[in-house]
C-alpha cells in the first residue's frame, strides 16, 4: 500500500433532473490531509460532497470511506460512517427552531452527552474557535449569512470528527473572518489530524489550507496535484481559474 486514503471515489456518476452532473469522478483523499476542490459554480461540487456522506446515492461508481463501500448502505447503516464525518453545508443548514447554542450542542446531545456543564464548555469552546462567542442565545434567523455559516461550522466540528467536508467555508465572509476560518481549518489538520475536503472559489483560502488541489470540470476531475503543481501548471483551463479569467467577449 503506497498511500493511506481515507476516501476513495471511483467512477462516480450522477444525473439529477435529467442533467448529467458527475460523469465519472475519480478522487483519492489521503488521510490527514486537506484537499481543496475547485470548480465552476454549478459544476457539481456540492452534489459531489453530498455523496461522500450518503446524502445522495450514486447512479453508479464506488465510494469507499475507511475502506468501507458506502454507496449500497441503508440510511441506518450509514449512521456510523456519518459520525466520523462533519459537514459544513453551503448555506449552513442550521435548525431554525433552535438557538445557536442548541444548534451547536445538538450533535453532543444526540450522541448521549447528558452533562449540561460539559455541553456548555464544549459549545463555548467551539463558538470561540469560529469567533462567535456571546451569540449563543440568538436564533439563526437573526444572524448574518457569515455568522450562520460560522455557527454551522461550530456545530460540524464540536463532536471532533476525523474528517470534515467544508462547502465554501469562506464565501460571504469578510477577509478577517475568512482568515480565522482558514487558520482554523489548518489548525484542525495539524493538531487533530483531521482529513478535510474544502470546496471553494477562494484562491487565498486555497493557498492557505491546501495540501492537494483537485479541479472539477464538466463532471470529471480535470486536475489533481499539489498546490505548487497547480501554480506551475500551464494548462489554460487551470490558468484561467487561478487568475479569474472568463472568455466572454465584451
Amino acid at each position: 500500500m503506497s498511500v493511506d486514503n481515507l476516501i476513495e471515489v471511483r467512477n462516480l456518476r450522477q444525473t439529477l433532473s435529467g442533467q448529467e452532473i458527475l460523469r465519472g469522478v475519480n478522487l483519492d483523499i489521503p488521510r490527514g490531509e486537506t484537499v481543496v476542490l475547485l470548480g465552476q459554480s454549478g459544476g457539481g461540487k456540492s452534489v459531489f460532497l453530498r455523496h461522500l456522506i450518503g446524502l445522495i446515492r450514486p447512479l453508479s461508481g464506488s465510494i469507499k470511506i475507511d475502506g468501507e463501500e458506502i454507496s449500497r448502505l441503508s440510511e441506518r447503516e450509514l449512521e456510523p460512517v456519518r459520525r466520523k464525518i462533519g459537514m459544513l453545508f453551503q448555506d449552513g443548514a442550521l435548525f431554525d427552531s433552535m438557538t445557536v447554542f442548541d444548534n451547536v450542542a445538538f450533535p453532543l446531545r444526540e450522541r448521549g452527552e447528558r452533562s449540561e456543564k460539559v455541553i456548555r464548555e464544549k459549545v463555548a469552546h467551539s463558538l470561540e474557535l469560529v469567533s462567535l462567542q456571546g451569540q449563543e442565545k440568538k436564533m439563526p434567523v437573526n444572524l448574518s449569512g457569515g455568522m450562520r455559516k460560522r455557527a454551522a461550522l461550530a456545530r460540524a466540528i464540536i463532536s471532533e470528527p476525523s474528517c470534515i467536508l467544508y462547502d465554501e467555508p469562506t464565501a460571504g465572509l469578510d477577509p478577517i473572518v475568512s482568515d480565522t476560518i482558514n487558520r482554523l481549518i489548518r489548525r484542525l489538520q495539524t493538531q487533530l489530524k483531521v482529513t478535510s475536503i474544502v470546496v471553494t472559489h477562494d484562491m487565498i483560502s486555497t493557498n492557505y489550507v491546501a495540501d492537494h488541489v483537485a479541479l472539477l470540470r464538466e463532471g470529471r476531475i480535470h486536475f489533481t496535484g499539489t498546490l505548487s503543481a497547480l501554480h506551475s501548471s500551464t494548462d489554460p483551463v487551470i490558468r484561467d481559474f487561478i487568475e479569474g479569467r472568463s472568455h466572454e467577449i465584451d
Binding site: 450518503g54 446524502l55 456519518r82 453545508f89 431554525d96 445538538f106
Partner: peptide
C-alpha cells in the same frame, strides 16, 4: 437542507 443536516449528523 435542515433534513439533510439531520442526516449528516447521523
Amino acid at each position: 437542507e435542515q433534513i439533510d443536516a439531520l442526516r449528516a449528523l447521523a
